[in-house]
């Protein structure tokens, strides 16, 4: 069963949203990402995948991207302490 979902790209956070979308096919190889008319389209042809599972993937990707953005300075400082 194939599934497709679309999201609008909000102007105020478009950089984060676009970045989140770009990482999805790497982390979820069965998902394809397209961008059309100011929308992001996630689709999959994988058996058993449905719109709900795509939505979860989108929520995860977006949350990860937002957290990465919000914590980027603190995280970079922390990881720098690990340099040998």
């Amino acid at each position: 069963m194939a599934a497709t979902i679309c999201f609008a790209i909000p102007e105020e956070s478009s950089a984060i949203v676009l970045s989140a979308a770009r990482w999805i096919p790497g982390f979820y190889p069965h998902v394809m990402v397209d961008q059309a008319d100011g929308e992001i389209v996630l689709s999959t042809a994988k058996a058993g995948a449905d719109a709900k599972s795509l939505e979860r993937i989108w929520v995860a990707a977006l949350a990860t991207e937002r957290l990465a953005h919000a914590g980027r300075v603190r995280r970079a400082q922390a990881f720098a302490t690990l340099a040998q």
Partner: peptide
């Protein structure tokens, strides 16, 4: 500001798995 060192993955079983940097 509160810092949340988390990443999130949608799992095959339908969970949202949140893992800390640590």
């Amino acid at each position: 500001m509160t810092f949340l060192p988390l990443r999130v993955r949608a799992t095959r079983s339908g969970d949202m798995l949140c893992v800390n940097d640590t």
